[in-house]
Design a protein around this nucleic acid. Structure first.
Lengths: 161, 161
DNA sequence: AAAAATTAGTTGCATTTGTCCACTATCCGA
DNA sequence: TCGGATAGTGGACAAATGCAACTAATTTTT
């Protein structure tokens, strides 16, 4: 009943992952790899693909004109230097524009460009689809339950940093 | 304190993240960053810290003597070359031992060392604690529900690859 | 009002990580 | 026995991450 035929002592299905079996961290980390790969495929060539933060930044700037890089950095859980480079990229791609924040000239205010806004429309659809599809094995109820719980967890993390 | 009202047009709490608000992918990816950081802290110095796969590999070899690198690679969602390097590291650290698989000399059979087994005992406790603590905002019911659903999702992903 | 402490952003660097691809050795099936 | 598939290795390379030092601007303190 166990023992596959050829694939060695243990094949993928009947493998014992020890305590990881009941470890939420493990599933979050594993699913992250899978979901990120899938997302990258679906977003291929879109100059918002690859790496965490570009999509969020696009939406954040689109929906919160004048938002600052450091605020976005908090949301995407990166430090300012990483954020700076992200903004560099996106500005080079013509997705957003940097201005000096009027009320504080240390800071910057970010604004979406037409190109960025257009891309946001597209990505908005793709991202939504990707997530639904990727987790399509779940029932709608399951999906909503998990979504609700993880959302709250994420919010709490933001509040603490 | 984070964000007084003067921190620009939008502060972290009242930011609109658009469709990401309802996108499970987003929360998986974000929580991954947070949970991975936290885990790295808790495992600091343990030569199983940093990066995905070491912990899983340790447990897999511990619980499935003679398991092959390529099998582990499937579980941790990495390719063979990445897996090879991981095994290199862990062998250098004296956590496991490579042998040639008796029934197939192309393949290798991995075995835990005493040092590896000892570390596994320690890590087993730490990992369990870390996950419970990190998600301690959830009720036990919430935790179990999410765990159950994500476990199944992960299993399905394994089956497809 | 001057000095000190904070904060925003930039830059360079070292480290890590993953990915792709080619290459060898071995095994299996026709 | 030949050809195709599989296991593992090694190199090259692009990206991402994190850290620390640095400038500039603002706020707080004295």
């Amino acid at each position: 009943m166990t023992t596959p035929t050829k694939n060695g002592p243990a094949s993928v299905k009947d493998i014992d992952i020890d305590v990881l079996e009941d470890t939420l961290s493990f599933y979050i980390r594993s699913l992250n790899i899978a979901v990120s790969r899938d997302l990258d495929e679906k977003l291929e060539g879109l100059d918002v693909a690859q790496g965490t933060g570009k999509i969020t930044t696009l939406f954040l700037v689109d929906g919160n004109p004048g938002i600052r890089p450091s605020t976005i950095a908090q949301v995407i859980l990166k430090d300012r230097s990483a954020m700076g480079r992200l903004v560099d990229q996106m500005e080079e791609h013509g997705l957003l524009q940097r201005k000096i924040a009027p009320e504080d000239s240390r800071a910057q205010a970010l604004y979406i460009t037409d190109r960025g806004a257009l891309l946001a429309v597209h990505v908005r659809r793709l991202v939504t689809l990707q997530s639904r599809e990727f987790f399509s094995d779940m029932t709608d109820e399951e999906h909503d339950v998990v979504l609700d719980i993880l959302r709250r967890t994420y919010r709490r993390i933001l509040e603490r940093s």
